[in-house]
Simulated scan of single mutants.
Amino acid sequence: MNENNDVFTKEEREEARRDEMRELLMNAFDGTSLLYEIYKKRGWLDKILTDKILSMDKDALYLSSQVADICETHDYVIKNKRRELLEYINPTQMGEGNSKIYKHNYISVFKLKMIHGLTGEGSEFTLPQLKEIIYGNITKSTTEQKQDAGNDMMFQMMKKMEQFDKFYDMVQSGEFFNEIDKRAQESARRLMLEGTKDDEVKEKVLEIYEKIISPDTDLTEKETFLALFNDLENEYPGQAYTIKMYKNASEDRINRFRQDEREMYIRKVKETISDLLDDYESAKSENERNLIRDKLQKIGRDNPDLSFEIRYWFSTIGKEKKKKGFFGRIFS
Rank of each mutant, 00 (worst) to 15 (best):
N287R: 13
A283I: 00
N290G: 13
K298P: 01
E288W: 01
G300L: 11
A283G: 04
D279N: 13
L277F: 03
D278L: 15
D294L: 13
N290V: 09
L296P: 07
K295L: 12
R301V: 01
S285Y: 03
E288V: 03
D278R: 13
Y280N: 04
G300F: 09
R289S: 05
K298V: 02
D305I: 09
P304G: 08
L291I: 12
D305K: 10
S282H: 10
S282Y: 09
N287Y: 09
K298M: 11
E281K: 11
R301N: 09
R301E: 11
I292N: 12
S307C: 07
E286S: 13
D302P: 02
P304T: 04
D302Q: 04
L277K: 08
R289A: 06
G300W: 03
L291C: 06
K295Q: 15
R293M: 15
S282R: 08
E281S: 14
R293P: 00
R293F: 06
D279Q: 13
A283R: 00
L306R: 03
I299H: 01
I299K: 00
L291V: 10
L291F: 07
E286T: 10
S282C: 07
N287K: 13
L296D: 13
Y280H: 11
R301G: 00
Y280I: 06
D294R: 09
Q297F: 05
E286N: 12
A283D: 00
E286A: 13
S307I: 09
E286G: 11
N290L: 15
S285E: 02
D302S: 07
N303M: 05
L296C: 06
S307K: 11
E286Q: 14
R293D: 02
N290Y: 11
E288G: 06
S285Q: 05
A283T: 00
K284G: 05
K298D: 10
I299D: 04
D278K: 14
L291S: 15
R301A: 05
R293C: 12
F308T: 12
K284T: 06
L296Y: 08
D279Y: 08
L306E: 05
L296K: 08
N303S: 02
K298N: 07
R289E: 08
D279A: 15
S285T: 15
Y280V: 02
I299G: 01
S282W: 04
Q297K: 12
R289F: 05
D305Y: 03
L291W: 04
E281C: 03
D279M: 14
R301P: 00
S307W: 02
L296S: 11
P304A: 09
D279L: 13
D305C: 02
F308A: 15
D302N: 08
P304D: 05
E288M: 10
G300P: 00
N287V: 09
A283E: 00
